[in-house]
Design a protein around this nucleic acid. Structure first.
Lengths: 173, 173
DNA sequence: GGGGCTTGGTTCAAGTTTGAAACAAACCTA
DNA sequence: TAGGTTTGTTTCAAACTTGAACCAAGCCCC
């Protein structure tokens, strides 16, 4: 079958999106690197842990939430561990597992970095959008994410074998 | 002044956006890596060159369009050059300059990869959006990009010193 | 017309990401 | 309960990215 190319509207949207997200990610990364000494992805690790019960999450769980590969997370947590912001513990009831725990120092670092981060997100994104647009943004990307990971199982999702796992594991088995 | 945190709506939008774009970029990268042997950023280099007059663009120009750093582009073009998809030439009227040219082989590779790429973009993004949402997406990210690079010069843009350059240089001086 | 600043591009080291193994514990199931 | 598969995590090499130098060539201007 012959390719269904993008319509002019779709092309414009696609290009705008690419340019926008590259600049956006860049601005965020730079700000965090400067003020917190870590890239966005690492900040997200701290942020995610801080919201988890007991500030702890199993590696696979964390990877799932971050939409990151396991090996990426391993590397990142190792680095954060060296910095004393995160600690690794063994999973009680599953000797294979390992759990990342946010240390007090990690929490402090996070709280320290948060205001600057939020300011950036605001000035770069939300200050430029109307309330309706905020809703539209949520709607659009929720749909995209659902399609890509939700067990909706169409062609596009087939390529994401390992990104679908989950295993509630913060409290009791 | 105390931090203006994100509203619940903004938080939801921000999280949805993060998850969505990570999954999206991931799907795109994987598809291109598989079928064309290169990441999205490299594909974009070929695509941009293919649309330029004479299929050639000065390095800085190309970097500007790609929203990439110069050093990143240098590395990428070197790789593509090794693969024979791009060639470097000296800029005629500015002995400092160097120009990236899409080779015939590069064009062929691009044309070969394009259908699969478009299919992915469709299935992952546009097939899930209504026409109105396509318009909203364009609008939102156009605003973001303009704010971040446009010479609108507010605080957020201060951090992007080198990303603003431009120097029309494809045709005559 | 010789400093001195700017611009275009590359280089280099350090950090990060990727995907494909490798490993080990857990879970079947015959 | 031994053997095979699945699941959780790490390891490893190769690829990529970053930011800070660095080197030239243009530009200014006295």
């Amino acid at each position: 079958m012959t390719t269904r190319w993008l319509t002019p509207e779709e092309q414009r949207a696609w290009r705008a999106y690419i340019a926008g997200y590259l600049l956006l990610e860049d601005a965020i990364d730079r700000q965090l690197q400067q003020e917190a000494g870590m890239p966005h992805a690492y900040y997200s690790i701290l942020a995610n842990l801080s919201e988890a019960p007991e500030r702890r999450l199993r590696m696979t769980d964390l990877a799932e939430r971050l939409k990151a590969t396991r090996s990426r997370l391993t590397y990142a947590v190792t680095r954060l561990e060296k910095d004393g912001l995160v600690r690794r513990e063994d999973c009680e009831w599953d000797r294979r597992g390992s759990v990342a725990v946010l240390t007090d120092e990690g929490m402090a670092t996070l709280e320290n970095a948060a205001p600057g981060h939020v300011d950036t997100v605001r000035s770069v994104l939300f200050d430029r959008l109307t309330p309706e647009q905020v809703g539209q943004l949520e709607e659009i990307f929720t749909q995209v994410a659902r399609g890509l990971q939700g067990d909706g199982g169409d062609a596009a999702a087939e390529d994401l074998p390992w990104r679908r796992r989950s295993s509630p594991c913060s409290g009791t088995p």
